[in-house]
Design a protein around this nucleic acid. Structure first.
Lengths: 144, 144
DNA sequence: TGCGTTATTGCGACTCATTCTCAAAACGTC
DNA sequence: GACGTTTTGAGAATGAGTCGCAATAACGCA
């Protein structure tokens, strides 16, 4: 369920399509993203891109978020993490130990939304679902 | 589904049960909570309780959160809101216009969790679900 | 009721994630 | 290559929340 690799070429094309200029900070940012496996934090990116200013990191993050190629999710304590979006509409199962993110799409959730829609007085306009887990790797070898 | 009123007496009893002292800032805080309909922010409480320090507001919020009588939820933009908990384990449908919170409990979500559990490699340890809506009142008279 | 112990308070400084301001630098087009 | 516009980076500002600490107030006991 977590296969599709996203190439930096695709991400650059996404920016071009939105009329953005392809600058070297953006190029570096995207090259780094391409190498990321699971979820990552903004601060992590900042320290891995020492030549790029924090503001630019956050601006680029927001840009890709708006373009729909990144997702922002929250850890149990509310700490934000980002991850590459591989499906159009999907949800995340994030490992609370190592941050690995497994995407999944499930029709049950859509059914659930319809059920809620008929139960609450008003119109459902969206939702957010995060599943927290301990991944196989962390179950086998509890890292920290 | 959003019926049960919680009285300040209950909330005070909750604090007593945890061995907390019933101080006047806490009393004021609880009296204010009792009058709240939907979700509210910490800053809102601060300005409505001018005699009580910010730190105390946040400490009391945390206390009641730990006691399980309050829930913390996130708006679509990530802004935090708090709401009184009326069920043990439940989810929220929050109006993105006025902040009204409707609680619901749905067995579909528990089914969903089991489905995800068998799909992702690892052990599901928790989840977070927020449903965003426009409530009946806001549909009828779009306030702002 | 009066006291002492201990929890709680409030202030202000601090953190963390993120946004804003604005002058300087970099793009892409002509 | 020149030029207009978009981006950038440094640092100040913001919002949510926490922390340290001296002053204060609850509660149990006599």
């Amino acid at each position: 369920m977590t296969t599709t690799r996203i190439s930096s070429t695709d991400l650059i094309a996404t920016l071009e399509d939105r009329g953005c200029r392809i600058t070297s900070p953006r190029r570096d940012f995207i090259a780094l993203l391409e190498r990321k496996e699971g979820g990552f934090s903004a601060e992590e990116l900042c320290s891995e891109l020492p030549g790029v200013g924090r503001a630019t990191i956050y601006r680029t993050l927001k840009l890709l978020l708006e373009a729909g190629v990144l997702c922002k999710l929250a850890m149990p304590d509310g700490a934000p993490k980002y991850t590459l979006a591989r499906f159009d509409h999907h949800h995340h199962a994030v490992c609370v130990q190592c941050g690995l993110v497994t995407d999944f799409r499930d029709s049950t959730i859509e059914r659930l939304m319809r059920a809620v829609g008929s139960e609450v007085p008003g119109k459902v306009v969206g939702h957010r679902l995060e599943v927290y887990m301990t991944c196989q790797g962390c179950l086998v070898s509890p890292a920290d």
